[in-house]
C-alpha cells in the first residue's frame, strides 16, 4: 500500500505540475507542504484546475465541502491519500 501510494504520489504531482505549468520539478515538491497559499502557492483557481484534472484522470468527484477540501488540499500527501481511497479508475 505504501509503495503504491508513493508511485501514485509521483503521478499526482506530475499531473499538478503539468496542469499548472509549474516551474517546480516533481521531485522537489515537499509532500507535506501546503498546496494552497504558502507552500506551493496555489490560488483557488489553481486548486480548481488540479481538482478538474484529478477528477478526470481518476474518475472521482471533488465536492465543494469546505472542511474536507482543506484536509484534501492541505498537502500532496493528503491529496494522494484521498485519490488512493476514492479513485474508480
Amino acid at each position: 500500500m505504501i509503495e503504491n501510494n508513493s508511485t501514485l504520489q509521483l503521478e499526482v504531482a506530475e499531473l499538478m505540475v503539468q496542469a499548472l505549468n509549474l516551474d517546480t520539478a516533481v521531485a522537489e515538491i515537499d509532500p507535506d507542504a501546503p498546496l494552497y497559499g504558502d507552500g506551493l502557492g496555489l490560488d483557488s483557481i489553481d486548486i480548481l484546475e488540479v481538482a478538474l484534472v484529478i477528477s478526470k484522470r481518476y474518475g472521482l468527484q471533488l465536492k465543494a465541502d469546505s472542511e474536507d477540501n482543506h484536509r484534501i488540499f492541505s498537502s500532496l500527501r493528503n491529496l494522494t491519500d484521498y485519490v488512493a481511497t476514492h479513485k474508480t479508475k
Binding site: Y36, S44, I47, L48, A51, L62, K63, S66, N69, H70
Partner: peptide
C-alpha cells in the same frame, strides 16, 4: 465567498 481553498469548486458545483 472568494479567498477560500474551495471557492472555485463551489462555483463549479
Amino acid at each position: 465567498p472568494l479567498g477560500r481553498i474551495d471557492s472555485m469548486l463551489q462555483v463549479q458545483e
